[in-house]
Design a protein around this nucleic acid. Structure first.
Length: 641
RNA sequence: GCCGGCGUAGCUCAGCGGUAGAGCAUCGGUUUUGUAAACCGAGGGUCGCAGGUUCAAUCCCUGCCGCCGGCUCCA
């Protein structure tokens, strides 16, 4: 180590000169003993490192305390080591895999002969508390490759990782008490820092996510700086379960699944209303500038060979027996694109017709792995609001801009806030760089003109073109892709798509794949969770429930229901039990409005309106006014009540 | 597909070797209700399916089917 001097710049602008190799904790101590007590780690030029790692470079120097968000990841990563420490004590045979910090906690993967049980988990957690109480310091050690191999001679997974490390990489190990791990760090100073944590569940996980490799046992856990944060997190999970579309779908009687057709929903009367209202809304929005079409559900293999799906997508397609050839060479379509191309090809097109936007709601089937199916978010049968735009290359910028606006205004109608991802050219791709330059800049310009923040995903585009994806997260924080805008230069070639240009010569159009909801099934799942089942009036299966206070008022209440129905409102009469009981039922079913009819109201021609979720507060209004108000809310598709 | 957990009345769940129970829902009756559960009574289950062990299986074992949590946010 040289006697070189490093310059550290503190957040207050002051600078410190320290010899290279100084420990950050010495620097922190020199700033103040109080700070040292709170310090978890430091950042040098933004890179987090722990207090015991010698400083190699100077630059912007910041001390992380529990107040800094980055410090949580450090704590959690240390939590993973503490978990492994405990597991190794109780199951010395366990080989260790990886144990990173994740969004709300951490996990660690182990290779064991006998999978972990829920009881094992309790034992591990108790053992972890002992390790925490033992206050083992995390000791970093930098070693050469041979030494690393010696230290992990009994851990084949670690040896594999070591073998993958490049020659220039620093190999470091961290030790806490009896446990040593190959690890880059950083870590908290000692094990006592992990105080508020909980092991959550186990799961199988393939080594390195590769289904050809062995399955490891993963333990998921959460960890926080304070008891309040931990409690809040656990509470958040409980709340999320209450919003779970699978739970609400059953409670609100919207849809269900049956083992005779895994991954295909049965939509009940109420659910079908939601579904159809959604489709109606999309149709209205698309009415002017899109062309709706329908195509077959079943196709012979020739189409899939032309599109390229037969080769690599066949195992995801439901194959159907062809009675003529006696072969399994027909398939339920897994996507609409090829059939839209055929529709386009059925006629000759002029440049004057472009962009030509074909949309469809046809049913699609994809044979997903059984283990991947989950509620409405992962199904085998679904519909997309699928659109393929055929356009001239010169129209790309304007078209992408148009589609962006369309998609964003659609989400806004539900109060959804998607996150955007812009995926650019992958290493293996078709087409010229000039083509990609143009496509990417068109997408980027359209994206930036909206003012929306977006995440850049370099190299994540499809081989046939760049794309913009629109994601939202469900109640459990899992991200789902809804909309997408994908430029495609490949399909027009494969299907020999053409249009007659101004010059009377044939030209190659570009295709844009566009979905807004993505899968309607999944979108409804997202909506259920987003609204916690309390749909805005226009989407609600039942919009008004009319409640006569006593039986003898049922005829008058029935008349009000009839008037509402005639006005296009989904209203129902409920006279079957006590008023309190019926109000409770209507609240539980999340009916937006309850219209209570008592003697006073019947005589005055009014209803006492109770709004979902608003409690006792009532609003006495003439029936006609109430009808007009609800009609307006429906027509304008306002969010709420 | 793979690993783990689970599958009992329409729903939520208890029971776990001696052929089943609660609450809610449903049905019948009483009550006629002013803003989140009136009262009484009744009906309802080849305990996911198929084998096996046992004198005896919802309960134990095996296999299927389905559902749930996951399956690199890299040492």
């Amino acid at each position: 180590m040289s006697d070189e001097t490093l310059t550290l710049t503190l957040p207050d602008g002051s600078a410190r000169e320290v010899p290279r190799g100084t420990l950050p904790r010495e620097v922190v101590a020199s700033i103040g003993p109080r700070l040292l007590r709170d310090a978890i780690a430091v950042t040098v030029n933004g890179a987090v490192q722990d207090l015991m790692t010698p400083l190699r470079a100077g630059g912007a120097f910041r001390v992380l305390t529990p107040k800094d968000p980055e410090s949580l990841a450090v704590l959690r990563h240390s939590g993973a080591h503490i978990l492994a420490t405990a597991v190794r004590r109780l199951r010395p045979d366990a080989h260790i895999g990886f144990g990173p910090a994740i969004d709300d906690g951490f996990y660690y993967d182990f290779e064991v002969d006998r999978p972990f049980t829920p009881e094992d988990l309790e034992a591990f957690e108790a053992e972890m508390r002992k390790v925490v109480a033992e206050k083992f310091p995390f000791i970093r050690d930098e070693v050469d490759r041979e030494e690393a191999k010696r230290r992990f001679a009994d851990d084949p997974l670690k040896l594999e990782r070591i073998a993958d490390l490049g020659d220039s990489e620093v190999i470091s190990t961290y030790t806490d008490g009896p446990f040593i791990d190959l690890c880059r760090g950083p870590h908290v100073p000692d094990t006592s820092y992990l105080r508020h944590f909980k092991l959550l569940h186990t799961a199988g996980a393939y080594w390195r996510g590769d289904e050809r490799r062995q399955m490891l046992q993963r333990i998921y856990a959460t960890a926080w700086w304070s008891q309040e944060d931990l409690a809040a997190y656990l509470h958040r999970i409980e709340e999320a379960k209450r919003r779970d579309h699978r739970v609400l779908g059953k409670a609100l009687d919207l849809f269900f699944f049956h083992h005779v057709s895994p991954g295909a929903a049965f939509w009940t009367e109420r659910g079908t209303i939601v579904y159809n209202e959604l489709v109606r809304f999309i149709r209205e929005k698309q009415a002017e500038r899109f062309i709706e079409v329908k195509t077959p559900l079943l196709f012979g293999r020739a189409l899939w060979e032309q599109s390229g799906h037969w080769g690599k997508y066949r195992e995801n397609m439901f194959l159907v027996h062809n009675s003529e050839t006696n072969e399994q060479d027909m398939s339920l379509k897994p996507m609409n694109c090829p059939s839209h191309y055929l529709l386009y090809l059925a006629k000759k097109h002029s440049y004057r017709e472009l962009p030509r936007r074909l949309v469809t709601f046809d049913v699609l089937h994809r044979n997903e792995l059984t283990g991947a199916l989950s509620g409405l978010t992962r199904v085998r049968q679904f519909s997309q609001d699928d659109c393929h735009v055929f356009l001239a290359p010169s129209q790309i910028t304007a078209e992408v801009r148009f589609l962006m606006d369309f998609i964003m205004s659609y989400y806004r109608a539900f109060g959804l806030e998607p996150s955007l991802r812009f995926a650019t050219r992958p290493p293996t791709r078709i087409g010229t760089d000039a083509m990609w330059d143009e496509a990417e800049s068109a997408l980027r310009q359209a994206l930036e003109s909206t003012g929306q923040a977006y995440e850049l995903k370099p190299g994540d585009g499809a081989f046939y073109g760049p794309k913009i994806d629109f994601d939202v997260t469900d109640s459990l924080g899992r991200a789902w892709q809804l909309g997408t805008i994908q430029l495609d230069y490949n399909a027009p070639e494969r299907f020999d798509l053409q249009y007659v240009g101004e010059d009377n010569a044939m030209h190659r159009p570009v295709v844009i794949h566009r979905a807004v909801s993505g899968s309607l099934e999944r979108f409804i799942a997202i909506l259920i969770e987003h609204f916690a089942g309390a749909f805005p009036v226009w989407l609600a299966p039942e919009q008004v429930r009319v409640l006569p206070i006593s039986d003898d008022l049922a005829p008058q209440a029935g008349e009000i229901v009839a008037r509402m129905k005639a006005a296009g409102i989904r209203a129902d009469l409920d006279a079957h039990d006590t008023l309190n009981y019926r109000i409770r039922e209507a609240e539980i079913m999340k009916v937006p409005y309850m219209a209570v009819v008592g003697r006073r109201e019947a005589e005055a021609g009014t209803v006492a309106v109770r709004t979902r979720g608003a409690g006792k507060k009532q609003d006495i209004v003439p029936v006609s006014d109430f009808i007009a108000r609800v009609r307006t809310e429906i027509a304008e598709r306002v969010l709420g009540p």
